[in-house]
Design a binder for these strands. Structure first.
Lengths: 349, 349
DNA sequence: GGTTGGCACTCGCGTAGACTGAGTGCCAAC
DNA sequence: GTTGGCACTCAGTCTACGCGAGTGCCAACC
């Protein structure tokens, strides 16, 4: 029986037998739909598992004891705990978008065009609208492209601006302050040296270039390499966040909302959150699994996207813990795939 | 009596005598503080205008008839109408920040440094924190600086990237698609021509440069000029919005909040809102004066900032209609002044 | 032994009524 | 014109109460 190929043999928590799993699933599904505690009768009438409410009740007490469900109070139905959601998500198969959503995605990508940054921005917008949640797209702009040109433009006597153009069309920039006035010729030679030395390298690998022998030029080159390293660290991740307004309808407590929106305003925190979740090998982070207190009532669904087979960034969706995981997982997967394809094509042309 | 220099002769609505004005002022002030309807007793005990509650009551009925106040229901106190707020704001003298706030502003500007964009961003953040509202800073990056360099960098055979560096350190960029493959030499000559022709001009005035005679180069130059015009139109206004999370505590109705946050996500709408308000010569737009339905319960306080005497952008604050106008007006004025000073100094050095 | 129907019990929620008190409008007196 | 007095209004609060959804337990059943 264990080897029966028809039995659902998933990597999920094996401590739950099939019926408990089915009941838990039904509770989670119903709760996601209605946001109301789910009673035993509700479970019976929803799924066709051929048992009476009484049986469901006794199973539910077990599920509660094991930490998958809670009761807001006696004489109310059950609500999934974080562990309950985790089980539910783990046993989900690959989902599908409904027709309208598929059309929306297809329509978006068939008309998509323009520069990388604008593409990422509009993708974020679309994803937010598609899922009615907050969408986050992180572009690893400094890691997914190579240097095309490096320029140094004098702004004032002692200040110049470093401008690095990448093959993706991304521009990194940073101002460099010098103690002494700088000559335009010196800037030009330094820029030529940098372009020659860094061309077709990743900006994150821009550590050294050949020296010129002229100490002034070499010193500026050193400053520029330093500036590149700083810029990569600071703005190497381009973050787009859209649909934060959708949070307003997900939570009724103003304080929760304030905390969540406040977190979203710290873009650095969002980037490291997503990195962290991906590093732990997760696709979904539920509640406290995000590791951030303000998100204890939120879940995050993430997926990397690739350009020519290589990770070029991450897309993600942040919503309430009781979000529609099937739909959101499908949406994130589809969008990341199509975005990967589109950007890879773009690169090739 | 009319010419008595001690009597408050303000440009406010003259249809209100001094006592009515004082009562209205007291009601607005109290309502801003408490968010509760204000009764006649409350008015008497607050301001020292030496009349009894009964007198205040009869005055308040007049103020209500004239549209400055409303009652949420009989047997409740009065609430200012939009017109009431308007009167209140019009008769406000120049306000002052309290000591703690002044310290905060001074501390920020004494440590402020870095590039223009980063400066504007952190200023927005500071303003949001200072006023506990949503702060908006619009930088007219394309109008407030002149061209320092124009470059064309080949990205792929048929695509190149236009990169314009401005004296402020701002970088404008846009990709240009060509029907035929382009040679690096051609790009270089076109870029040289553009730099020579546009240097020290404003990007918004970049309409033409001298021709080279080479039709290919000239055609690319034409494309580049076109691209500059588009970029100026599209990203000539750099928008920073911070403190949107503060809106969560200003409104309790989720739908209002959703509408306001949704509007804030459309940055274009915010820019044209602010432009529009300034064009009408206003410093404060109250409720429907903003011209945007989602902001009917909000007020906007704006002030331009200048670099070397010339308008370089706008700072603004968006909050609930019942915000603390005195404080906010003072904060916006102080921040715009100090920002102007800082940026002008920076330019000079 | 697992399953089931029956049943008593719990408890949130909605409704109804009473009460409170803040605040008004009116009026007669000052 | 101003004031104190007074009747009136009405939102908010509290309490009581019944309803009903839902539970836990148990004895009976297959």
């Amino acid at each position: 029986m264990v080897d029966d190929p028809t039995s659902p043999d998933r990597p999920a928590d094996r401590s739950l037998d099939d019926r408990k799993a089915a009941i838990l699933r039904a509770v989670v599904k119903a709760y996601i739909e209605t946001a109301q505690p789910v009673g035993s009768a509700n479970v019976v009438e929803g799924g066709a598992l051929g048992v009476s409410p009484a049986t469901v009740r006794s199973e539910m007490t077990v599920l509660e004891r094991e930490g998958y469900l809670t009761q807001p109070h006696t004489s109310a139905g059950r609500i999934p705990t974080q562990r309950g959601y985790r089980f539910f998500v783990d046993q989900l198969g690959p989902g599908e978008l409904d027709a309208a959503q598929r059309r929306q995605v297809r329509g978006f990508f068939s008309h998509a065009h323009g520069e990388l940054e604008e593409m990422l921005r509009s993708t974020t917008r679309m994803l937010a609208r598609l899922t009615s949640t907050t969408a986050v797209v992180v572009g690893d702009v400094a890691d997914a492209a190579v240097v095309r040109s490096v320029q140094l433009v004098g702004l004032s006597a002692r200040t110049c601006l470093l401008v690095v153009v990448l093959s993706s069309g991304t521009v990194l920039k940073r101002s460099i302050e010098r103690a002494d006035p700088i000559d335009d010729d010196v800037l030009a030679s330094a820029a030529a040296l940098l372009t020659a030395g860094l061309r077709d390298k990743r900006p994150s690998k821009a550590l050294a270039v050949g020296l010129s022998g002229d100490p002034l030029v070499d010193s500026i080159v050193a400053d520029a390499l330093d500036a590149i390293a700083h810029t990569v660290a600071e703005s190497g991740h381009l973050v787009h966040i859209e649909g934060a307004s959708n949070m307003a309808e997900a939570f009724d407590a103003a304080s929760t909302l304030h905390a969540v929106l406040g977190l979203l305003e710290q873009q650095m925190a969002v980037v490291s959150l997503i990195e962290d979740v991906l590093d732990r090998g997760l696709t979904v982070a539920i509640g406290s699994e995000t590791g951030l207190a303000p998100l204890s009532e939120c879940s995050l669904v993430v997926a990397p996207y690739r350009v020519d087979g290589e990770r070029a960034g991450t897309i993600g969706v942040l919503g309430p813990t009781r979000m529609n995981y099937e739909e959101t997982l499908a949406a994130v997967a589809v969008v990341s795939n199509r975005l990967s394809r589109l950007l890879s094509e773009g690169e090739r042309s």
